[in-house]
């Protein structure tokens, strides 16, 4: 089974990289771009067929390593 994990900064946490990206896009002729938030996308291959079990294990992985819950949120998506 494949899993997709998105790690994003929590609301209220300043994202200077996202801001720099936004400014660059504005300068490049995309004035419609407002707030930009940058995050991480992680793809994992799992040797697990039970979706509920996989989800629980992924939660644990996110809390232990993939996300820093002081500043980041995570979302988990299971594919196939």
């Amino acid at each position: 089974m494949k899993a997709r994990v998105h790690v994003t900064l929590k609301n209220g946490v300043l994202d200077p990289q996202g801001k720099a990206i936004g400014h660059s896009l504005n300068r490049l002729g995309f004035p419609e771009v407002g707030d930009v938030r940058q995050g991480k996308y992680i793809e994992l291959e799992l040797a697990e067929t039970d979706k509920a079990k996989a989800k629980a294990r992924l939660e644990d992985m996110c809390k232990k390593l993939l996300a820093n819950t002081v500043i980041e949120n995570y979302s988990i998506e299971l594919v196939g």
């Binding site: 300043l14 200077p16 990289q17 002081v70």
Partner: peptide, 17 residues
Amino acid sequence: MTEAGLLPGTLMRNSHL
């Protein structure tokens, strides 16, 4: 040590990048 939970908070990218 912040990542290990020995100290509170975290260290983020410098605000001026």
